[in-house]
Design a protein around this nucleic acid. Structure first.
Lengths: 279, 279
DNA sequence: CGTGCCAGGTGCCAT
DNA sequence: ATGGCACTTGGCACG
């Protein structure tokens, strides 16, 4: 029976059963404070993921500080020590601690206290529970790969692979080139041999992007002592950014992140086809 | 017995029991796909909060697109439709949907499919589960107030309440004053009657902050046709931001967000004392 | 470690 | 809807 725990079959749920130390899922409904303390201590020491649903209040002290008055929330503690306090609405946690914090759990005046401490910067999140509706701890097996497409990095790679996305005759020389402080996304020469700086934005470019580009162009113009063109590559440009761009003598080139991602995929497919079917 | 559901006593957990339509917490371990579909449909229609732990893969298409290969994760769906897919590590969800999206749940090829669709921009997150270890749905009662201290807003209020934080003789006239595009944090006159623009940052100010301040100063200088001073108020300023600041003839004033928050608290206490004990 | 910069940023509030 | 901006922004890459 206990062999199933290690097998590939459906996960077993053990109910208030402390005997199987490597069981994968533990669920307690309405545990008392002492039981919760025990469960959490064992979960933290075994780096298990924890979900607590209950009535709590939360203090935070660190770069800023905050106070959350009592209410029912979901608290998640991950195996790397990341802590999330979620209310019933919204994308963002109301309180949190990024990964790498140290966890303590104890009972104090009939409340369950979970303390999450991080240093540099020194920050403390303290959660007080006076009632726990539900507590679950488990190990998640997750080796699945995550791939994101149509990011700014995809745009950069696509431009390097297919420079005509910027303009005909454009030849990239370098990318992520350090300039003063900051990095030029792509750096190259145009069909007339002029130096070109390309600033890439994956969404509508604002004035900030234009100023960033202008800064690089100006810095390079001075250090090289010759003409430098600046091209802003983005799917869209805001009205006043366009105005500023023109007044600074810079260019805009419409580049769509999704098309970049598709272009890369096609190139990759062709590479694979070439590899397998080349005569 | 069913009266307890409405009472103030500990929440009841009903196990695979579809009869109590307003029970507050439902927990299913290892439900089959059909049961999960039913539970989720009822949860979404009743705007219950949902936690699913199981083996899933996730597709996202929208501003960008992403693919998450199979693995065990925690999925949370909140009562406003916010969706979070969390892996075993890290502060951030690996996939998500902000609040306000439309949810569908169905069975497809023996998998549970949860689809979360949002418009403007059109984005779709689709989660496929081939095994559900654990599913819980519930209503969270949460009216607790949240207060954040030592935010930029606290700094602004503190400077308005105690202008000497900027410099002796400084007199604020306005705040959040609209300038061209943008808002001046605090606007006033110094001891010599010169116009002063204050830009506040709650953490180390970088060049961006300096440029922001310079923009306001320049705009006001032109529109008023007279000298305008610019003061950057922040707990710290980065090295090259300081250099830039000096080259632009702007000033820096060290202001600590926590001290601002304490100052406000003291002022508030005094206000209350005055109110109760004034002769 | 600080500094710079991206993010599917999100959220809040303004016109 | 768009714009401007703060955020305990988090995260990464680099000096």
């Amino acid at each position: 029976m206990s062999e199933d725990i290690y097998g590939e079959g459906p996960l077993k749920i053990y109910w208030r059963n402390p005997l199987h130390s490597d069981r994968r899922i533990v669920v307690c409904e309405n545990p008392d404070i002492d039981e919760a303390v025990n469960r959490l201590n064992e979960a933290f020491s075994e780096k298990r993921v924890v979900i607590v649903v209950g009535s709590c209040w939360v203090d935070y002290r660190g770069r800023a500080s905050s106070k959350l008055e009592p209410g029912e929330r979901i608290v998640i503690v991950k195996e790397d020590g990341a802590v999330l306090v979620h209310r019933s609405k919204g994308y963002e946690p109301i309180n949190w601690q990024p990964s790498g914090c140290i966890l303590q759990v104890f009972k104090e005046e009939d409340n369950l206290v979970i303390k999450a401490v991080k240093r540099t910067p020194h920050e403390v999140v303290t959660m007080f529970f006076d009632r726990i509706h539900f507590l679950s701890t488990f190990k998640l097996v997750d080796e699945g790969e995550f791939s994101l497409y149509a990011s700014e990095e995809d745009m950069q790679r696509a431009i390097l692979a297919e420079p005509s996305l910027i303009e005909d005759g454009f030849k990239p020389i370098d990318y992520e080139r350090k300039v003063k402080p900051g990095f030029v996304d792509v750096y190259g020469i145009d069909r007339d041999g002029r130096i070109v700086v390309v600033e890439i934005k994956r969404r509508t470019a604002g004035k900030e992007a234009v100023l960033q580009l202008a800064k690089y162009v100006e810095t390079l113009r001075r250090s090289l002592g010759r003409e430098v063109r600046g091209i802003l590559a983005a799917p869209e440009i805001s009205r006043d950014a366009r105005q500023l761009l023109l007044s600074l003598g810079l260019d805009f080139r419409r580049v769509d992140p999704k098309k970049c991602s598709e272009l890369l995929r096609r190139k990759e497919e062709r590479r694979i086809v070439d590899f397998f079917y080349h005569p």
